[in-house]
Design a binder for these strands. Sequence first.
DNA 1: ATGTATGCAAAACATTTGCACCTGG
DNA 2: CCAGGTGCAAATGTTTTGCATACAT
Lengths: 138, 138
Amino acid sequence: MLESKDLRKVGLKVTLPRMKILEILESRSEEHLSAEDVYRGLMDSGEDIGLATVYRVLTQFEAAGIVARHNFEGNQAVFELNHGTHHDHMVCVECGGIVEFVDEVIEERQVRVAGEHDFELTDHSLILYGRCSNCRKR
Amino acid sequence: MLESKDLRKVGLKVTLPRMKILEILESRSEEHLSAEDVYRGLMDSGEDIGLATVYRVLTQFEAAGIVARHNFEGNQAVFELNHGTHHDHMVCVECGGIVEFVDEVIEERQVRVAGEHDFELTDHSLILYGRCSNCRKR
DNA sequence: ATGTATGCAAAACATTTGCACCTGG
DNA sequence: CCAGGTGCAAATGTTTTGCATACAT
């Protein structure tokens, strides 16, 4: 559970908007929220925080390594808390559902491929698109 | 080399804008062009084709399987001709350079992961970000 | 106190769409 | 001829920014 000191640790002042946004992200940590989603979450909680602030804060959190931003197909980016363990995503093109996974062999191979091309790997994005088990039944 | 019959084959009328856009994509097939890039290419060749048409045509080409669209980091999508062989991308975060690669082990693993989750795989996107060999020398 | 954050409204982009006109088959 | 394609301008949707005010330390 992240708190004030975690914000200070990364050099961010502890403000109400930042704490509230952290709360939303934590309370819905199994989801992948767009800036809009976070904003609506705040409104529903009666918080009066601007959408621009949501964008600014999420961007700062990303820079600080607190959240990860993903550009799945479609227009808007989604965010999720970085709970330590790296993982990739599988997105259902029918229902939008998301499954997270990790495959050590793929991870290793990526490092090897980068090495073969003298690339200093800083990050990667792997997204599998398809139809999830639920949608396939219909 | 793609030509008129390839357009007819996928049910698209052979029009001047479509042919010109195909030409641009072919003449710069090592690059990954944004819609803007294609548009400027057309302007530079003295063609008077609207940006809206470029977007429409690229979208149709994608639907027809003639081109692939990629959402690298940043805002605008890039397009490249589908020259048969599937491949993934490594993007240099410093110079923007792109290296294409294929790793059979990764490909296999993706299929296996999808299978484990009862996912019917339709597509995937793997992008490695880092600093390329040239940028590392500086 | 003072540098940073925030809210609001406006701007900036990338992309899409409506519509009257043009064109390929 | 006529369905489909195109150009232009306007609309859309997401994200960013300018600026005056409010707040954390």
